[in-house]
């Protein structure tokens, strides 16, 4: 069984790995640090493309992190920083695609698919719940009645 102490030390171990990326960057206040964290996890590292700037240890990611740090500390707004990055590296640097004509389909496809799915659901379940009634000719009904009557009389 894991003792409380070893658990505590294990937690410390993970804490240090999470914080590894911001060592060496002194922040004036927590707000700045928070902003730096958020932005560095929203921006993609272009060298190792499935990692954010916060996760990556590539040279370029380090450079872009220090660029990001400089801009956060000098008080640039998130929008200004995002614009700076996309002007140089394109929309690709953003993990979350922008809402633009180029990405319109990407954003509205889920809504369209939901509507289509809903429509299909309504349409097809209607068929199931109300199967078409077939008119049975009166002559056949008469036959059935006779047969049932005969069955009844047998008992």
């Amino acid at each position: 069984m894991m003792s409380r102490f070893s658990c505590f030390y294990l937690c410390l171990f993970f804490l240090t790995t999470v914080n590894a990326e911001i060592t060496g960057f002194p922040f004036k206040n927590e707000k700045e640090e928070q902003r730096f964290r958020e932005l560095s996890s929203e921006l993609r590292c272009l060298v190792c493309q499935n990692q954010s700037l916060a996760d990556s240890n590539a040279e370029l990611a380090q450079d872009l992190r220090s660029e990001l740090y400089q801009q956060v500390v000098s008080g640039n707004s998130n929008n200004q920083i995002i614009n700076f990055m996309t002007k140089r590296y394109g929309d690709f640097i953003l993990y979350k695609p922008r809402f633009a004509t180029k990405t319109l389909l990407l954003w509205i496809a889920p809504i369209i698919l939901f509507i289509v799915g809903f429509f299909c659901l309504v349409r097809f379940s209607k068929f199931k719940n109300h199967p078409q009634k077939k008119e049975i000719p009166e002559a056949d009904l008469q036959k059935i009645r006779v047969l049932l009557q005969a069955e009844e009389e047998k008992k």
Binding site: L46, V47, E59, L60, D63, L64, E67, R88, Y89, G90
Partner: peptide, 13 residues
């Protein structure tokens, strides 16, 4: 040397 201008040009590789 610092790669600052590289960032201006959007260099990544």
């Amino acid at each position: 040397e610092e790669g600052k201008v590289g960032i201006e040009w959007g260099a990544y590789g």
